[in-house]
């Protein structure tokens, strides 16, 4: 047993971190608040870097890697707070044209049972809706028609939302989708993004606590602040163990545990990061609220706390 990352896995993750640091740093993030549409050139770069085709067979132009590697890359997209339907494009690469290369963006949503919302409706060429039952029909929509439908004013400025259409659409072409598996993987990749965000907000809180001085000392020297930061790391590292393990085992229960703990880590770490920043944390200018708001959105996707906790509880009786 060696649960830690292999050298290759570490390099893969470092590569994605470097790519995103160069192409989607804090300034680009701030600019995206006003213009949240994903940067198409960056999207194609991500396609070229293999983010979408990562798990497709090499014979089909994919990278031929597995879920653990996908989780490591998605952790980085969460750390950078990269907007866009990343999970959808990863899971639908190879099924819908132009997605694997990053040429086209597509959406993925779950029918009733989920939030009933999907992200970046104006940017996606197609929307795939998974049924709530594993044997139900998978439907595909061209979202043009839905453009006129009323839209919620999304809490996350980087994630425009629209309601998932009820009924209609056409059947997804190609071989049958393993719906349970796709939902499970969507939950896990979303959890990986939450993990990245949770780790990022620990880093931001610690960096600020080291330099911000009050009462003649860095605030990080005060236990009241120090202990908040320690608690954040504990949340992130516990979630990390759960997320990585679920990527290895692909067990339904472990994915539930990973989603629950990563949601919790992302939301609560963003809150604590905000608290450590004091008044600055409450401003629009600081990026912390963007982590919190995205974490709220992701927490609603692919299994919220109520659904996940009930599933885990049911598992206690059978397991």
């Amino acid at each position: 047993m060696d649960f830690r990352l292999t050298k290759e896995q570490g390099e893969l993750q470092d590569g994605m971190r470097a790519l995103l640091a160069g192409r989607f740093g804090p300034e680009r993030l701030r600019a995206a608040v006003a213009e949240p549409a994903p940067d198409r050139a960056l999207w194609r770069e991500l396609g070229a870097a293999g983010l979408f085709a990562l798990r497709l067979p090499e014979a089909d132009g994919g990278v031929g890697l597995g879920l653990p590697e996908a989780v490591l890359l998605f952790e980085e997209t969460g750390r950078a707070l990269l907007p866009g339907p990343l999970v959808a494009c990863h899971l639908l690469a190879g099924r819908l044209d132009g997605v694997a290369t990053g040429e086209r963006l597509v959406g993925l949503a779950q029918a009733p049972g989920g939030p009933g919302l999907w992200e970046h409706p104006d940017e996606c060429a197609e929307l795939v809706v998974l049924p709530d039952r594993a044997d139900g029909p998978v439907r595909v929509f061209r979202p043009d028609g839905a453009a006129d439908a009323p839209r919620p004013s999304s809490v996350d400025p980087l994630t425009p939302l629209a309601r998932v259409p009820e009924g209609g659409g056409r059947a997804l072409p190609g071989p049958a989708v393993d719906v349970r598996r796709m939902r499970r993987e969507a939950a896990l990749l979303t959890a990986a993004q939450q993990l990245g965000s949770a780790a990022r907000t620990v880093g931001k809180a610690v960096a600020y606590a080291r330099v911000r001085e009050q009462f003649g000392a860095p605030i990080g020297a005060f236990q009241a602040v120090k202990h908040l930061c320690a608690g954040m790391l504990v949340r992130a590292e516990t979630a990390r163990a759960a997320v990585y393990a679920a990527a290895v085992t692909e067990s339904e229960d472990e994915v539930c545990a990973a989603k629950l703990l990563a949601d919790d880590a992302a939301v609560r770490n963003a809150r604590d990061c905000l608290q450590v920043h004091g008044g600055m944390g409450f401003t629009w200018e600081a990026e912390i609220h963007l982590h919190l708001k995205r974490a709220w959105w992701r927490a609603e996707c692919w299994g919220g706390a109520r659904e996940t906790e009930e599933r885990l509880a049911a598992g206690l009786l059978t397991g």
Binding site: A242, C256, A257, A305, T308, E309, R311, A313
Partner: peptide, 8 residues
């Protein structure tokens, strides 16, 4: 739900 969270 409390027990479910403890399972996680």
């Amino acid at each position: 739900r409390r027990l479910g969270r403890l399972a996680a």
